[in-house]
Amino acid sequence: MSNTAVLPVVIPVAIPVREVLPWLLFGFVMMLALYFVGAEEGATSLIPGMYIHEFVHDGRHLLGFPCH
């Protein structure tokens, strides 16, 4: 058992912005993933065909994206 009495309370200290900025690149990757679920082969298309659209079709509708 760990001694909870010495567990320090976390004091909210902001993370310096310059530490966060490089990770925004991953934010871009996340957005790309969202794009493939939400809009690829619908509003616009990077990959020809309709396979991705049809594959994620139910999710696209239920997650609120315009489809069809």
């Binding site: 902001a14 966060v20 934010g27 996340m30 957005m31 993933a33 679920v37 594959f55 139910d58 239920l62």
Partner: peptide, 30 residues
């Protein structure tokens, strides 16, 4: 569509938003 397709769609969506959420949190915290 209602099986692995739906699963892939929602899990990718949720995981991607989880990551974006963490980045916003990193800015907002404190």
């Amino acid at each position: 569509q209602r099986g692995i397709g739906l699963f892939t769609g929602v899990v990718v969506y949720a995981t991607a938003f989880g990551g974006l959420f963490a980045l916003v949190f990193a800015f907002a915290y404190g």
